[in-house]
């Protein structure tokens, strides 16, 4: 464990909690892409199957359970509890255009042709594109509530910190996970446009983000 990965995990946790609390307290999921949240729940499900097969640390196990519970709880809020506030017409990204290539690639490019390994690889590839329905929804509606932009900021920051973690681990322990690193770079690149808008618009106190 190093400070970059710990900070990254904390940013990830903060992002997920920000979103959950926003929906829970406002009793509304307006402007939130349910599709992205389903994809994140799928990412955690396919990545954390080793919860039952290998114990790494208390921290690792606790965080995996917390991420899984919050991810499914958020999906529940969107599609069941507050479904009347869900903007399904704005959440129109064709997720099959993500799932099919990601599933295909995870069979072609992986470390081992074993079920757990392919599912882990699928989760890594899927996570790099899972936010696209949400970003697409924001470009479609042309705006995002400031709390949603804070959620996206921490979500984008978490994988950027993981990139620093991989640089650190490469130099200190020679660790290099090519699939995770390449996907992490792609994932973070998708946030660059958002980061620019976030720093120039939201942090200038303009409240909600309105796209040009």
């Amino acid at each position: 464990m190093n400070i970059f990965r710990l900070l990254g995990d904390m940013c990830h946790l903060v992002a997920i909690i920000i979103l959950f609390l926003k929906i829970w307290r406002s009793k509304s999921c307006a402007g939130i892409s349910g599709k992205s949240q389903v994809l994140f729940a799928l990412v955690f499900t396919t990545r954390y199957l080793d919860l039952f097969t290998s114990f790494i640390s208390v921290y690792n196990t606790v965080m995996k359970v917390v991420f899984l519970v919050l991810a499914y709880a958020t999906v529940y809020l969107i599609y069941l509890r507050f479904r009347s506030t869900y903007n399904s017409e704005s959440d129109s990204f064709r997720v099959e255009f993500l799932l099919v290539p990601v599933a295909g690639l995870s069979f072609l490019e992986n470390y081992a042709f074993a079920p757990l390994e392919i599912l882990w690889t699928f989760s890594i590839y899927l996570e790099s594109v899972a936010i696209l329905p949400q970003l697409f929804m924001i470009t479609k509606t042309g705006e995002a509530e400031s709390i949603t932009t804070h959620y996206l900021f921490f979500l984008g920051l978490y994988r950027a910190l993981y990139l620093a973690n991989w640089v650190w681990r490469y130099h200190t322990e020679g660790f290099f996970d090519q699939i995770a690193v390449v996907s992490g770079v792609v994932q973070t690149i998708f946030y660059c446009d958002f980061f620019y808008l976030y720093f120039t618009k939201v942090l200038r106190g303009s409240g909600k983000m309105t796209l040009p």
Partner: peptide, 10 residues
């Protein structure tokens, strides 16, 4: 042990 079980990151 393949890389799968060595997954120590979240």
């Amino acid at each position: 042990d393949g890389p799968a079980s060595g997954k120590d990151e979240l």
